[in-house]
Write a protein that binds this DNA or RNA. Structure first.
Lengths: 117, 117
DNA sequence: TACAATAGTTCCAGAATATTGAACTATTGG
DNA sequence: CCAATAGTTCAATATTCTGGAACTATTGTA
């Protein structure tokens, strides 16, 4: 079987990151992964906004995140565990990622608030 | 003629911004606009990376930036002058935009450096 | 070794988006 | 009113995305 490929941090680009995070499903996955306390399998991210993703779509989305350099995936037995590359990314891109995540979080909490009202 | 439509700042979303800026041509346009000292017509952004954009494409890209809430366009005689909405955006999204722009700028200056070498 | 169960990936056809030349609209100067 | 300039819209083509079905990979069990 071929190994899972990750770009070197030097090959990670801003446009790649923005593209990957410009999809609402993918940011959700990424943010949820960033919030996780340990590496979780792909299937842990299979539900987004109360909608179950087809597994081929989930696989594609995770691949996009991986190839953009945002996450790292490694096989652990029958499943593939995923983590963000936030530390490396922060070294290279400063507060780009955290800025995006924070903006999303603020937006989401504002949305939840207005829904309750 | 119908007026040019801009979203209210309250309707501007993070995903919309990321989507708009995930295109290399559009970030170039946006960054160049942000760097401009005064409002310039669309045609001022018609050349990106030494390649002349077809004007229908330029028009589309500017429309995407406008509808994402990133820029403001207003007719001034025969041309349409464009400015960024950076101030409003910073109020709403903190350092999201500046983080993106800074990351891009660092990346571009690194690229230029390695080309020279 | 074989097979079943689980987790993901790949393939590919249909759906959705993006690109761009050509035709069109808007504004102004003469 | 006409010509020139600046952009927009239309529509055909091209590219990218989505997701079901078939496939591969790993492990546990017999």
């Amino acid at each position: 079987m071929r190994p899972i490929i990750h770009p070197a941090i030097t090959d990670v680009t801003v446009e790649g990151i923005l593209y990957a995070l410009s999809d609402p499903v993918r940011v959700e996955i990424f943010m949820s992964m960033a919030a996780a306390d340990c590496a979780k399998p792909c299937s842990a991210y299979g539900e987004v906004k109360n909608r179950k993703l087809p597994k081929s779509s989930l696989s594609q989305h995770i691949k996009v995140l991986r190839e953009a350099g945002l996450i790292r995936s490694q096989r652990q037995g029958v499943e593939i565990r995923n983590t963000t590359r936030c530390t490396e990314l922060a070294d290279k891109f400063g507060d780009l990622i955290s800025g995006i995540v924070n903006a999303y979080q603020r937006q989401n909490s504002a949305k939840r608030k207005s829904k309750r009202a």
